[in-house]
Amino acid sequence: MLNALEVFTAVVVGVMVGVEFSVLFVMAPILRALPGDSGQLGHAHGGRILGAVMPFWYIGSLVLVAVRALAGWHHQGTALVVTAGGLLILSVVMSLLLLVPINNRNRTWTPENRPEDWKEQLDRWFRYHCVRVAVIFAAFVLLVAALV
């Protein structure tokens, strides 16, 4: 049973990391290269879609890691799982304090109502996202290391 939980947890966290890597290394460069207002509109649309899904995914990943840590408390690798959980907590806090406020504003922007500093705000979101991806990637690496 513990093995099934470990595999399921690794898959859920791994796919989440993959989605965020895709945003960082595929979607962001594509959106930045689009002409005119298209990039900002695409970012807003992506924010609406992923903004509806990712909170559940982040919290779900954290819950799975916590359940694995508790269920396997006396098993080898639990310290790595707990550390991975701490990093996932950090990613949720970062998201709530740094990324979500920018994303919530951007979701409603149109070329007619966006602020003058919209590009700077999206650049700030991107920098925070880079750090968040590094944090969740480290959590995933620790989680997988604990399970092998």
Rank of each mutant, 00 (worst) to 15 (best):
L50G: 15
T83L: 15
A139K: 05
M1G: 12
I49L: 07
A145G: 00
M16C: 08
H75N: 03
G85C: 02
G47D: 08
S22L: 14
L31G: 02
V12C: 04
Q121W: 07
L62A: 12
Y58E: 08
H75V: 04
I30H: 01
S61W: 13
Q76Y: 11
V100F: 06
F140L: 05
L62N: 06
R114S: 05
S61A: 14
V15F: 09
G42I: 02
M54S: 08
E116F: 06
A10M: 12
A52W: 11
F25R: 13
E120D: 00
L41G: 01
A4H: 10
D123V: 07
E120Y: 00
R32D: 15
Y58M: 15
F8L: 11
D117H: 13
G51R: 01
S61M: 10
G86K: 14
E120W: 00
A4V: 14
L24N: 13
A146E: 08
V26N: 12
A139Y: 06
L122T: 09
W125A: 02
V53L: 15
R48L: 10
E120S: 00
G42T: 01
E20K: 00
E116T: 11
M94V: 08
A44F: 01
P115H: 07
N3A: 13
A10I: 07
R105K: 15
V15R: 04
L122S: 12
E6L: 09
G60D: 10
L2H: 06
W109C: 01
